[in-house]
Amino acid sequence: MIELQNVSRIFSVGDQEVAALRDINLKLGDGEYLSIMGPSGSGKSTMLNLLGLLDRASSGNYLLDGGNVTDLSDAELARVRSEKIGFVFQSFHLVPRLTAAENIELPMMLAGIPAEERKPRVARLIESYGLGARADHRPDQLSGGQRQRVAIARATVMNPTVLLADEPTGNLDRTTGWEVLKLLEGLQEQGISLVIVTHDAEIGARARRRIHMLDGRILSDESSGA
């Protein structure tokens, strides 16, 4: 359960103040499938960063699973990110010198989970994401689709409650893009919340709940019955 109350995010550019988000109110239930759409500069990426606790609101409150995370310290925010949030990026963001398996293992390593517990979890994910033959390959030896599957495996390895995807199909061809999208939707069906930021209307339309943004405000918030 995520709730944004009157959240604004204001950037200072030179001596000018630019509001990327203005007075946003949003409630997101567990297991929801939400797409955020809008033109460049509409504030959708800022929104995603805020939801992912990578950025802080200039004003307003952010409640995550009932707790107020607005005023947590950087270290506490890092812990919440580690436990509850998974990121999928447009450009995958895999560590180039690590193998697919090691990339998937990374969040668990950072969280201090012992190696003997990490290996079986990584093995299970590699198997279920169809990467079995590619476990020991480095990112530059993988196709775009495979890279994004490794990234999704990495995002889910800590069993987060919400998955934040920023243009997850932006760097993929149409066919692989659909495959990745199906994979994400499959995860959502298993109970994880899924937030996808996109400017592809066709992809955005697949979400049960769709937000359109413009100039830092929510223009429309539509839901279709499940």
Binding site: L54, D74, A78, S82, E83, F87, H93, M158
Partner: peptide, 15 residues
Amino acid sequence: KEIGLLKALGAPGRQ
């Protein structure tokens, strides 16, 4: 970028 990623994956500054 890697540092940004590590932070996104839940690594605090100290780490």
